[in-house]
């Protein structure tokens, strides 16, 4: 208990001091996770919507695979991306291993299935309601998809948030493909793990608090946005 309170005080003073290393770690974390969420949204949402709307060969296989991939262990994704990007791997020539790009890449793989699977559910429900009306108005397949994504925008925020939650919280994948290199690939989760192992609980706790506050802030504002949107457009 004493440990905790002293660590807590130290963490607060560390945060208050505006420690430059801390700021750098936080900034990189946000950059990696938000970047991954953005890319995964661009891939996952249309993919989810397409599996909801179109009857293409292999559609059921895609659905099953997406659902199965939702629960991928981050360390395994990290390992696979590591193998792909390592010097011996097929993408070794790009020299991406132990860079923030590799971390984004791993997180994209981790969260595309989440965003796609949740989007599919949301779009499918909406499609049931919109189907005949949109066809009657004369919307083609692509236009239908765009319309459903737009009209489902507030519900779809949930899918994006779920993706962000997973990306910002995971440590396994970024640890393996990023390497937790100081000033290069050190993010909040990896440095928490490191600081704890070094016994530097103040820094670990400070980072942990920031992580929680950030996550609360992002989820909270998205929640408010979603609520007001849903209320407005029923």
């Amino acid at each position: 208990m004493n440990d905790f309170s002293s660590a807590f005080t130290a963490a607060l003073s560390l945060l208050a001091s505006g420690d430059a290393d801390l700021a750098e770690i936080i900034a990189l974390s946000l950059q990696v996770s938000l970047g991954a969420v953005f890319i995964a949204t661009c891939i996952g949402m249309p993919l989810g919507a397409a599996t909801a709307l179109y009857k293409f060969p292999g559609r059921r296989t895609v659905v099953v695979i997406l659902n199965a991939l939702m629960g991928l262990p981050p360390v395994v994704v990290g390992l696979i991306v590591y193998l792909l990007l390592s010097r011996m791997g097929p993408f070794g020539v790009l020299g991406l291993l132990f860079t923030p790009t590799a971390m984004v890449f791993a997180q994209v793989i981790l969260i595309v299935p989440i965003i796609a699977a949740l989007s599919r559910q949301i779009v499918e429900d909406l499609w049931r309601e919109y189907d005949e009306q949109l066809r009657s108005l004369g919307a083609g397949p692509l236009r239908c998809m765009a319309t459903l994504l737009w009209d489902g925008r507030f519900s779809l925020l949930t899918a994006v948030l779920a993706g962000f939650g997973r990306a910002s919280a995971e440590v396994g994948a970024v640890m393996i493909v990023g390497g937790n290199i100081d000033h290069v690939t050190r993010v909040m989760t990896t440095s928490i793990a490191l600081e704890v192992s070094k016994g530097n609980l103040a820094m670990a706790l400070g980072l942990g608090m920031v992580l929680i506050v950030l996550s609360l802030a992002i989820n909270g504002s998205a929640f408010l946005l979603k609520e007001s949107g849903l209320r407005k457009h029923a």
Binding site: Y130, E132, Q133, S136, T147, D151, H233, A234
Partner: peptide, 16 residues
């Protein structure tokens, strides 16, 4: 299709 339209028994309004 281009020259017809329909109003449904339960019209669906887009969220706009």
């Amino acid at each position: 299709a281009r020259h017809q339209a329909m109003v449904f028994q339960r019209p669906v309004m887009l969220r706009r």
